[in-house]
Design a protein around this nucleic acid. Sequence first.
DNA 1: ACCTGAACACCGTTCAAGT
DNA 2: ACCTGAACACCGTTCAAGT
Lengths: 227, 227
Amino acid sequence: MPPVRPRPGRERPARRTLSREAIADAAMAILEREGLDALTMRGVAAALGTGPASLYAHVEDKEDLISICVDRAVAEVEMPEPDPARWQEQVKAYARSMREVLVRHGNLARATMGMIPTGPGALASVEWLLGLLREAGLPDRVIAYAADLLPLYVSAVAFEEGLWAAGTPEEMEAYVGAIREHFAGLPAERYPHLVAMVPELMRVEGDERFEFGLDVIVAGIAALAAK
Amino acid sequence: MPPVRPRPGRERPARRTLSREAIADAAMAILEREGLDALTMRGVAAALGTGPASLYAHVEDKEDLISICVDRAVAEVEMPEPDPARWQEQVKAYARSMREVLVRHGNLARATMGMIPTGPGALASVEWLLGLLREAGLPDRVIAYAADLLPLYVSAVAFEEGLWAAGTPEEMEAYVGAIREHFAGLPAERYPHLVAMVPELMRVEGDERFEFGLDVIVAGIAALAAK
DNA sequence: ACCTGAACACCGTTCAAGT
DNA sequence: ACCTGAACACCGTTCAAGT
């Protein structure tokens, strides 16, 4: 009669098997907590209790891993039932949701720029936007360029906002103060327009800034579509 | 009578003294030849025949060095005599020139984004744009946001174009081909709008794309200014 | 097939020491 | 004050070896 043994291979708790999904989960957690700059292959591996080399059995390289994260994030963008009569408002709501998602995921925006989306999340997102604009009756050529311009704008804004959010609030405060002083001290004879505009420029604020660009772009698309 | 000596301290050719300017020159040369990714403190130092530590006597850090390069590049943007009656066309010409400058300097665009300009080159550029829009009679608030939106758009486009230009033309060709095939193979029942739009989306081309966005933004600014 | 330790070829920046 | 060699604390990725 064989001696009683603890269940075979269970002397220590089984290591969670690595997988594309588990790696992406760990990466997303780091992104949300610390942002894109803190996302390293070594960090992801450490979070999974292994070494960086182990990741390469499931993931092509760091770029590949980031593209998985981007696709997951983009899938979170809200896509309400298209209502062609309200396409301008729906396009804006879509852009607002995308901005929120990109900022929340530790400035993934830097990665979305220049990326041609091929993952299911991004494809569903593009499909939604194209559908809305087509049902609204915009010309195909305008739709093609608009569907390219809109995410570009949102990504650019989110990218910048991610950079600014990198520092602590105190550093941020100090930086803005230094900028303000620098601009206030400029010679009016050399930069008359700039000096005259300093108060107005200093009033520029994140949300309003985003909404202004959105207004401009949606109004511009509507104008070009009507031509 | 003292022996004839070669000029004092000239036994070897004198090392070119380091300076902020010399360091920036070397950095700009690397940028134009190899792009932003290839710009390293070690590379700049090597080009100047010294070690990386030597740079830190003249330059705060890498970010500081890049900001010098950005300012130099922005100073190259064309700024014709403002003609308020033609402000829309002049804004577009300004944007085209900025795009060209950013792309030519090895994708400096990634660095201009999120940067509040304080150097003389950037200030002159902002001053010009503000002056044009003020003389054109746009409302101050629209000017403030427009002067922010326009460089953001140009930088975003240049940033993406810099990414695409990173590979060789053959790699580029292969990548576009793969994308085309991927999109052509998508199930029409899952992505009806996307599949229907593939031919139109594939016709999207760099210059036309940039011009479309420019048209949209300038038309949008004009529309908001008229309200 | 999957996982691993160790190593390779890089980074930006700091520091003590020189001149 | 300026410059330097060496070192520190990181990277992404590869590779031979294990299972």
